[in-house]
Simulated assay, not measured.
Amino acid sequence: MAKRTGIYPGTFDPITNGHLDIIKRGLRLVDKLVIGVATNPSKDPLFTLEERVEMVGQYIDPLASEAGVEYEVVQFDELLMKFAERMNAQVIIRGLRAVADFEYEFQMTGMNYQINPNIETVFLMADPKYQTIASRLVKEVARYGGAIEAFVPPMVAKAIVEKYAK
């Protein structure tokens, strides 16, 4: 039986507890999960691409080991569907928090389907306790000295605080 490979793409600037929730649940759906860390310079990232790849890697390793699933953290700077094809993925995993996410993802899924109808998109609803977490908001709260420990893993919170202290 062929392995089912899934991709969970994102900027992950920074990786949040919501992202980790989707990763953990996505690991149950595939034999291999590729976390695609996008360059996305239009978002003006706080962390470099290398820093984001490293952060994602440190948090997915224990989750994947526990689930018994292969994983890979890969940076990419191309159309998602081209990246998915290059990774031999059959599934793209996306997290949804609110109606606004659905509207955007609905359009993206339609476009992606026209590019390659053989790759399915699976939506996972965010756990209610993570539905308000967005990387953009975490950075904003941290920029103004607010507490972010409830939204991101401890080492990520520390890295964010250090970035803003410079």
Rank of each mutant, 00 (worst) to 15 (best):
M1Y: 13
A2I: 11
R4G: 00
G6V: 03
G10D: 02
F12Y: 13
F12H: 04
D13C: 02
G18A: 15
H19E: 09
I22N: 04
I22G: 06
I22Y: 07
I23T: 10
R25H: 15
R28Y: 09
V30I: 05
V30H: 01
V30A: 09
V30L: 05
V30T: 07
V34A: 03
V34F: 02
V37A: 04
T39C: 08
N40R: 14
P41T: 08
S42V: 09
K43V: 08
D44F: 08
P45L: 07
E50D: 12
E50R: 08
E50I: 05
E51L: 02
V53F: 00
V53A: 06
E54T: 11
G57F: 02
D61P: 03
P62D: 11
L63V: 11
S65K: 14
S65W: 09
A67Q: 11
G68Y: 08
V69C: 13
E70C: 08
V73Q: 02
Q75L: 05
F76E: 00
D77A: 14
L79R: 12
M81S: 04
M81H: 06
K82F: 07
A84K: 01
M87E: 15
A89Q: 09
V91R: 12
I92G: 02
I93F: 07
I93H: 06
A98S: 15
V99I: 13
V99G: 01
D101Q: 06
F102C: 02
E103F: 05
E105T: 08
F106V: 11
Q107G: 13
M108V: 08
G110P: 06
M111E: 04
M111N: 09
Y113R: 15
Q114V: 10
I115V: 15
P117R: 03
I119W: 09
E120W: 00
T121S: 13
M125K: 07
P128S: 11
Y130E: 03
I133P: 00
I133A: 08
A134P: 00
A134L: 12
R136L: 11
L137D: 12
G146D: 08
I148R: 00
E149A: 07
P153H: 06
V156R: 01
A157V: 10
K158S: 09
A159H: 06
V161N: 10
E162V: 00
K163R: 15
K166S: 14
K166I: 13
